[in-house]
Design a protein around this nucleic acid. Structure first.
Length: 634
RNA sequence: GGUCCCGUAGCUCAGCUGGAUAGAGCGGCAGCCUUCUAAGCUGUAGGCCACACGUUCGAAUCGUGUCGGGAUCACCA
């Protein structure tokens, strides 16, 4: 049991004995004692003084005396300042803690609890390569899965591949039009980048054709539209003219909106867009040549993804393909109708009314009977549960889908699905550049493969400058560059609270100093270097004279199990990132001040070696939760 | 317009289940390598915690409102 939990228990027992009142852990707070006061942990007394009918000073004094008398193994001293009872934990406890755990590589982890959790993450589209945003998703998902594992859960990592739909048809059409039979091999291009290039080519051609239509429209030629489209366009144009005549600043926004609508209609009317839509229909009809092309191009993408996933350390226990799941959920619609959770409109479309929950009416089936995105998700949620009997289902998806995920969970709940309450949307904020959002149209998207390679390069340059590993062979060197470069990137993306948007500055944000992955890796390497030289002897060390910097480190290490618990509870890897940095920093301060190998006495040396070993274990374990390796030398 | 998220040092972020004088890193300034890896350590400057009101013994933290930024509200996925 951690010292904080122990302290809570002792305080509860003491108050029960002293005042005959039963408190719980939630009735009072225990904090770390601020450095400017004497003590290790502090009981905040304010919340207790009313029930015990005592002044803070008197309560603190009584409680402090009682704790020291009854639990001499834990507490040695106390002082009361205002409403704070500062307690000094006995050195015996800290030494005992080191002796017990210094060699336990599982320290902090919990035994299996028999529960299953599925973490869905990554979820790529097969029309373009992964970018920086995907990296945040992948690192988060993988890390959260590891955190659950360390907390005793059985974890199934899953991925839903968005492999069908208009976007992949766009790449296919462009390849047919402009590809001349080129392949990733013939052009020496990674498969996902290759297909992505055709997606861009499609967009460029689409833009060109839309511009041509626009110039026709400028001459009042609307022959490229069908009747319905023409009516819409004319209506919008009339509205626009009216707004322009009013010459009101407030109309500007409306006009922008109308222009967007017009552009959308125009884009959909371009020949190339019509071709793509036809191809989607052909795909749904299972037309052999379309299916064949689809398989070929997706195959290229998967080959590319595999390389990237391997490089960044993402893997999945199961992969769902939308081409297999997009028809799911149709039965659900029928069930929902018969349960009166859904209702049908006159045109045959099916809806759910969520206005009572503060949301809108939401379509669940089109009038043509095909299912929409949300319906597929309901179906897949059901399938996940049927297949694995999972206790919890985590979805790592960006915060632009907060509304969608809220709706998904709500519908599942209304349908009375047993897993509905355990659906959790792990929402994360977008990664932005100093110049704003990444936009593929403006070519400001940071490519995943490129940024990883760049990080490895920086790692290489810095390592060569420092010249500490000149005896490494090429293989060892490349592994080290990868470990450091990727470690820096992962740490950078994971150290921030997932739900917050974050800014990535390619020039400045990635540093190898301070609050970074490499700094932590560096401290691990230093410890390993010492452990190679010093002889750590098994058996308990006895030392009753802990120096402040030694104690700081022990106190920090002792918190690890609680930190893991918190990270799991919050599904938040940044909790671990912040903690492991604290450990590295605390060790670093200790390291510069006190020599381990040339310690004052053999006893001190053994204590410090054990402390160093425990630090290395915790650093390695914590970094592993983040998916970051730590080198023995760097 | 409705709903949701965010606003803390020049920059990037902690702290938010209320607790002592609000913390890190980067950047600035000043020191420290004949001593276990200086990717380091130490010191210093830098804050009306967006603003206002409220709840409380106590508010960066909770509530309401205002301002600023973002997301979303498709028979797209």
């Amino acid at each position: 049991m951690s010292i904080v939990n122990t302290l809570q228990k002792c305080v509860i027992e003491s108050l029960s004995a002293l005042h005959n009142i039963n408190f719980t852990e939630k009735d009072f707070q225990i904090n770390e004692t601020k450095p400017e006061f004497e003590g290790d942990y502090t009981v905040v007394l304010f919340s207790l003084i009313k029930p015990v009918k005592s002044s803070p000073e008197a309560l603190g004094k009584n409680l402090g005396e009682y704790l020291i008398k009854e639990y001499p193994g834990y507490f040695t001293q106390f002082n009361v300042i205002k409403g704070f009872l500062n307690l000094t934990i006995s050195n015996n406890f800290w030494i005992d803690f080191v002796n017990k755990n210094y060699d336990d590589i599982c320290f902090g982890k919990k035994p299996l609890n028999g529960k299953k959790v599925m973490v869905e993450y990554s979820s790529p589209n097969t029309n373009k390569p992964l970018h920086l945003g995907h990296l945040r998703n992948n690192f988060l998902g993988w890390s959260v899965a590891e955190i659950f594992k360390a907390s005793g859960y059985e974890v199934i990592k899953s991925c839903i591949v968005n492999d069908r739909g208009i976007h992949i048809c766009k790449s296919m059409i462009a390849w047919q039009l402009f590809g001349n039979g080129a392949t990733p091999e013939s052009t020496s291009t990674k498969g996902d980048h290759f297909v992505g290039e055709y997606y861009v080519k499609f967009e460029n051609e689409l833009k060109k054709q839309a511009a041509e239509l626009a110039s026709k429209e400028a001459l009042k030629n609307y022959t490229h539209y069908n009747g319905e489209e023409q009516n819409k366009v004319v209506a919008f144009e009339t509205q626009k003219v009216k707004l322009l005549e009013e010459n009101n600043d407030k109309n500007k926004e409306k006009i922008v909106k109308i222009n967007d609508e017009l552009l959308e209609i125009r884009r959909n009317a371009t020949p190339i867009m019509k071709t793509a839509k036809n191809m989607l229909l052909d795909w749904e009809a299972g037309k052999p040549d379309v299916i064949e092309l689809w398989k070929k191009m997706n195959g290229w993408v998967y080959e590319g993804f595999e390389v990237t996933y391997k490089k960044i350390g993402s893997d999945f226990d199961t992969t769902y393909y939308e081409s297999n799941t997009y028809l799911l959920g149709k039965e659900t619609v029928q069930q929902g109708l018969s349960k009166n959770v859904f209702f049908a409109k006159d045109d045959g479309s099916v809806w759910i009314d969520l206005t009572a929950d503060g949301l809108d009416e939401k379509l669940v089936q089109r009038k043509d009977g095909t299912s929409v995105y949300i319906t597929q998700d309901i179906g897949l949620a059901q399938q996940k549960y049927d297949e694995y009997k999972i206790d919890r289902s985590i979805y790592v998806i960006g915060d632009e889908q907060n509304y969608h995920m809220k709706v998904l969970k709500l519908i599942c709940q209304k349908l009375g699905m047993p897993y509905a309450d355990n659906i959790y949307h792990l929402s994360y904020g977008m990664v932005e550049l100093p110049t704003g959002k990444m936009k593929s149209r403006e070519g400001t998207v940071v490519d995943a493969d490129e940024i990883v390679a760049e990080m490895e390069n920086i790692a290489k340059e810095k390592t060569e400058q420092l010249g500490k590993v000149n005896d490494f062979n090429n293989e060892e060197l490349n592994k080290l560059f990868h470990t450091i470069g990727l470690g820096a990137l992962k740490f950078f993306l994971l150290r921030v609270d997932p739900k917050k948007r974050m800014i990535f500055n390619p020039e400045e944000s990635i540093d190898f100093h301070g609050f970074t992955g490499p700094f932590i890796q560096f401290n691990h390497a230093r410890i390993k270097s010492i452990l190679r030289k010093g002889e750590l002897k098994k058996g308990a060390v006895i030392d009753n004279d802990l120096l402040p910097l030694e104690k700081n480190l022990i106190v920090a290490l002792e918190k690890y199990p609680l930190v893991l618990q918190q990270a799991c509870h919050e599904m938040n890897p940044s909790v671990i990132a912040i903690y492991v940095y604290e450990i590295a920093k605390t060790f670093s301060s200790f390291y510069t001040e006190h020599s381990i190998l040339s310690a004052e006495t053999e006893n001190k040396k053994q204590l410090r070696l054990k402390l160093a070993n425990l630090t290395a274990n915790v650093v390695k374990s914590a970094m592993a939760q983040l998916g970051i390796e730590v080198p023995d030398r760097m």
